[in-house]
């Protein structure tokens, strides 16, 4: 159940690592966009073969991120503003595509989320993606992203391909967002134009909780995974108490509080070192 959150947190990680205060605020709406367009455009038109679907979601995620990266690098607008407008744009578009939760996921996906056993296809998918992350984090390419994020001026002056690293970080983010969207679609079995947005904040919270600095250059995917699992567990524990109608609010309250607190702790620790 925590799969979409873990994947979304991993999606934000390379962009934050690449520095410049870049945080992808649009990760949630992008997830939602892939979810609703998958349900609306592909399934309803019977283009629902697994290959077709996977090709589509990855292409959508990657293309969007390439556009965002190009604006950040060449127009030199602060990344946070760019992704903020992306958030606004996509959350509007999502509602245009699908005005309320409806539709069905591709047939072959339907039984994925319904299984009670932990060993569902979503779980295997998650393991594959985490494997991919571990591979990615050992590549020289990942190192170039971290170098760029840790000190962009140093990296530039020493001939690191910073534009390439930044584009790459966004592309990887696009792939992980696509995976998160697939997992999300499998879990809810339909399309939902608004729920995706909530992933922005929880993914960032997971990342910060995992010890990645929003200033870039330090941290990593493992922390984000643990952070996401933590948030999921907190939510889960909270939901076992019977808060009745307010349980959703308790979640909101705790997510917000955890985010602010972990930011504070992070900054205090950085200052002490």
């Amino acid at each position: 159940m925590a799969a979409p959150l873990i994947l979304a947190a991993l999606a934000v990680t390379p962009i934050v690592l690449a520095g410049r205060g870049g945080v992808d605020l649009s990760v949630g709406p992008l997830l939602g966009f892939i979810n609703v367009t998958l349900v609306k455009w592909l399934v309803e038109n019977d283009y629902a073969s697994p290959i077709m679907v996977i090709a589509y979601v990855v292409a959508a995620g990657v293309l969007y991120q390439i556009v965002i990266a190009a604006i950040i690098i060449y127009v030199r607008v602060a990344p946070i503003i760019v992704t903020l407008s992306g958030y606004l744009f996509l959350s509007g578009i999502n509602l245009v595509v699908l005005d309320r939760p409806s539709g069905v996921a591709p047939d072959w996906m339907l039984d994925w989320g319904s299984g009670i056993s932990i060993l569902s296809p979503v779980f295997y998918g998650l393991i594959i993606m985490i494997g991919f992350w571990i591979f990615f984090s050992r590549t020289v390419f990942y190192q170039q992203i971290v170098l760029t994020g840790a000190n962009e001026r140093m990296a530039f002056a020493n001939g690191v391909n910073i534009a390439g690293a930044r584009f790459g970080a966004h592309i990887v983010a696009g792939v992980f967002t696509a995976a998160a969207a697939l997992a999300y679609t499998a879990l809810i079995g339909s399309g939902d134009p608004t729920q995706g947005n909530t992933y922005t904040l929880s993914a960032i919270t997971a990342l910060v909780l995992g010890g990645t600095s929003l200033a870039g250059g330090t941290g990593g995917g493992l922390g984000s995974i643990l952070g996401a699992i933590n948030i999921y567990l907190i939510t889960y524990v909270l939901s076992t108490y019977n808060f009745g109608t307010v349980s959703g609010f308790v979640t909101q309250l705790s997510t917000g509080a955890i985010l602010v607190l972990s930011l504070l702790v992070n900054s205090l620790m950085n200052r002490r070192q």
Partner: peptide, 27 residues
Amino acid sequence: FRLQGQALIVTFGLGLAIVGGSQIVTS
């Protein structure tokens, strides 16, 4: 102010906590 440069995230998170809290109170 303490977390310079992260005003956006901080206020976002705090806002979410506030709205969660006030909904609990009002409900």
